[in-house]
Design a protein around this nucleic acid. Sequence first.
DNA 1: GTCAATATGGAATAAACATTCCATTCAGAA
DNA 2: TTCTGAATGGAATGTTTATTCCATATTGAC
Lengths: 281, 281
Amino acid sequence: MDGPAPESYETLRRSIASQRNDLSKRLRLIADYALLDPSAFALRAVAGLAAEIGVAPSAIIRFAQHFGYSGFSEMQNVFRQRLEAAAPSYRDRVHNLEQHGGADATDDMMRRFIDAGIASLKDLQLTISPDKIDEAAGFIADARTVHVLAQKRTFPAAAYLAYNLARLEMPAHLFDGIGGMLEQQSNLMGPDDVVVAISFLPGAQTTADVFSLALDKGARTVAIVDVPRAPYVHADVVFEVVEASVENFRSLTATISLALVLAIRAGTFSAHKSNPQDERQ
Amino acid sequence: MDGPAPESYETLRRSIASQRNDLSKRLRLIADYALLDPSAFALRAVAGLAAEIGVAPSAIIRFAQHFGYSGFSEMQNVFRQRLEAAAPSYRDRVHNLEQHGGADATDDMMRRFIDAGIASLKDLQLTISPDKIDEAAGFIADARTVHVLAQKRTFPAAAYLAYNLARLEMPAHLFDGIGGMLEQQSNLMGPDDVVVAISFLPGAQTTADVFSLALDKGARTVAIVDVPRAPYVHADVVFEVVEASVENFRSLTATISLALVLAIRAGTFSAHKSNPQDERQ
DNA sequence: GTCAATATGGAATAAACATTCCATTCAGAA
DNA sequence: TTCTGAATGGAATGTTTATTCCATATTGAC
């Protein structure tokens, strides 16, 4: 029973289920197993599956061909789709935006950047845990001073965080390193302070140096990174943010939004602290 | 740096993250990709991964061996574990997300900011005309110097624009007004320059003052505002951007995205100008 | 029970793939 | 600069894995 081979997992699954009763004995064994444990079909090899199910390897190829595929490998790709969907891969979520890179009309580019920004925001919602935000916001609310630390492409996000903290009357200090004052500025950090660092690859060395210093001095530390790496992995709270990129320009929307939420949550906690009779609403 | 090879995905990930900085150049490329897109490591073959990352196939084997595995295949099994673990719960996870919407305060707030950001981006796409972007980008590409001007809440967007212009090798100058140097900085503006101002209500007076000066000096002017008003309405190009706000905190996502598109378009025009025989690809 | 059509297992083959090895390049020390 | 050891790319090799093919077994019709 041929016809075009199903291209999506759901279609394939329906097809297997509906034909099951018409299959030969061996093929039916295989069908049942495919419905029962699709992950095995996605990840294991023909020989292994055959042994598990108790059929000959060739039976598995016949099974795939029965549903219109050229062989097992082709069918396996459909099973793998399902796994990729379950653990969404960066390539799927974000990289695709870079695919048709040739078009360079302005409106097309704008559309792609906007899509990239939206993808980043949605990903932020899926991957960032509110508990972590609360933890970091708690540190910030209790801090004597909040030092915000970033260079180059992430600097705008740091400026935004510092601005909003200041607006909420929290003692924020933006490390700008202007005039080679970085070392003096570093000396301001103490154990009652919180240091928030934002660093995306390829990170600036000075950001890493100052952050390491903060760790040594026993300050509370919060890191926002794209890829976890030393010294940021040693922070008290580490946020991993995936920003979509188009033609090697990375968006900042997710990072900016995270900074804003952090500031506001910290502001809330801080207000509760100074007015203890306030209740959460 | 050997030792026993990690047997769980989480252990492996931590191990890669912490050793990342000590790896050689190629191995570090691979490490970043593994952290960014673990699904690819679970499903793809050595040759395909190598091509994607831009390294030799043997480098991937070396990467696996560096972390204590006998070869790539053994490491790949660890990445596959993660997919198997993620697959069954996928349906539940999506369901849960849709179910208890207003779970706790932080979660709810994050959702609202993300929705606000997405709304701003969609609005940007609807309201900003590509022709205006091209016009502004043309000015920027032709300028001797680009002065970027903003204060307070819009300053991060200005920093972002200046950073990206500089990255594209365009002469960008960020007005920071540090040390009361604003007046001296203002004198840098001339008729061959472009001034880009970003101002949202309630605008800073200094931004308006410097912008007026730019108009007087005959510089090309570009304004990004939320509400059109003097002196910005007299700019050569005026963009009106609507940022959604939540509880009086305005998002910056649309402005940031607009800044990025402006920079890249200007970069494109500038590149075409300096290499006239270049064709668009 | 015999025959024909179909299903099946397993060996043989082909393809894809991982791994090793070595010549060359690169980066750092003297 | 020259030297030395590490890093790298790419071709050669070996292994795993998919697929084909055919001899044999099974099923169902008569």
